[in-house]
Design a binder for these strands. Structure first.
Lengths: 208, 208
DNA sequence: CTCCAGTTCAAACGACCGCTTGAACTATGC
DNA sequence: GCATAGTTCAAGCGGTCGTTTGAACTGGAG
């Protein structure tokens, strides 16, 4: 059996990250969420205040473990000194794919939610995601720069946004329509493929 | 002065690709489009039939020159025989960035529109884009496979979707919030950076 | 001038949107 | 038993959505 009792607030967050991940922010109505969560519409405004506040809470909850794991890995790598590009890329990618995709059905839902919100059509929504991941961004950029001393800051930043984008893309599962690709088959294999792809690009694909 | 006469139909398409590119499909209302196009709301249903049909027409019109150029380049490369991965990547990326970004303000609008629609939250919308680019997809996959005989079909497909995704990402200008990145500064330079990045990834970043 | 197909228009349709209200329910502390 | 704070509820608010309607306008053909 599932958890016997789940608060209305938790049910709303769970359904919100599922529906927002499927249809985006604009494409998902509060009514659709509350019906699926067996809650009253007013419950959203009672517990969160507004639709956007519900999204904000869902993003914060979903990102928290990913951010924590990334911080932990960065701390660990920096303590040992001089991490390689591959180690840094792993420390960024794996918490986003592994940690989240390995948690079964719910993990995939969370991953898709994060990936979808990160590149939502609305800039307002994207900034909401960015605010949640910004604190670690500068740390990664600095660490990558140290690991790639021959690359210009612009080149490092270019590689970073590409890494961020590709991760979000695979998280959102928006490209599963592509031929011969079955992302969710083995998350670990996907993570390995993505890391290999990015390591090669960082190593030899950045203009000075 | 601008073009003196522009049909209602053309004005609707122009404004549609601008607004859809800014706010996404769900986030843009027909009223916002028709007001900006100085047209009546009913004109949309008269000329196209529905909101989705307007989007479909806008996607078709925006993709047409890109597809044509990609086909032309593929024909040319295959006529000469045995194109390299870099040549194939250029033949895919440059029509999407160059050809479209070099056309000034309107070009950037078209690019953002295409990039945004390609990864819209709604699967229905994404398929609408996919239908427009599918015909060439299989040609690219086959050509890439020939150029990378050591890579498995899965690896080639993986590289292809990453290429597609990164192109869409840079077209959509969704990552301009990132630090030190100014995509639109020099589209040619962006194209070069992206090609270099992808060539390295394809050359050494694909698992067998 | 008349006609007519093509196009544009103001107005309204029903449906759905996010959000609010005020009452009803629930559980805990006294 | 009773008050009280926390939570849920049905109902409805004003507003916007995509779409439709039927009339008005337009310009060229006969």
């Amino acid at each position: 059996m599932e958890t016997p009792v789940e608060s209305t607030r938790e049910r709303l967050l769970n359904v919100a990250e599922q529906r927002f991940g499927e249809g985006g922010y604009e494409g998902t109505s509060l009514r659709a969420i509350t019906v699926a969560a067996a809650a009253n519409i007013a419950a959203v405004n009672y517990h969160f205040g507004s639709k956007e506040a519900l999204l904000r809470a869902a993003v914060a909850r979903a990102m928290a473990p990913v951010n924590t794991e990334r911080r932990r890995r960065l701390d660990q790598l920096e303590a040992r000194g001089g991490p390689s590009p591959e180690q840094l890329i792993r420390a960024f990618i794996e918490p986003g794919l592994d940690l989240v995709l390995r948690r079964g059905e719910r993990g995939a839902v969370v991953a898709r939610f994060i990936g979808r919100i990160a590149f939502d059509p609305s800039q307002r929504i994207r900034e909401l995601y960015a605010a949640e991941s910004d604190p670690i961004e500068s740390r990664y950029l600095a660490a990558l720069q140290s690991a790639l001393p021959h690359a210009s800051p612009e080149a490092v930043a270019f590689g970073y946004v590409n890494m961020l984008g590709l991760l979000a893309l695979h998280q959102s599962q928006a490209l599963s329509r592509a031929p011969g690709i079955d992302d969710a088959e083995d998350p670990g294999k996907l993570a390995e493929n993505l890391v290999t792809f990015l390591v090669a690009a960082f190593d030899r694909g950045l203009r000075t």
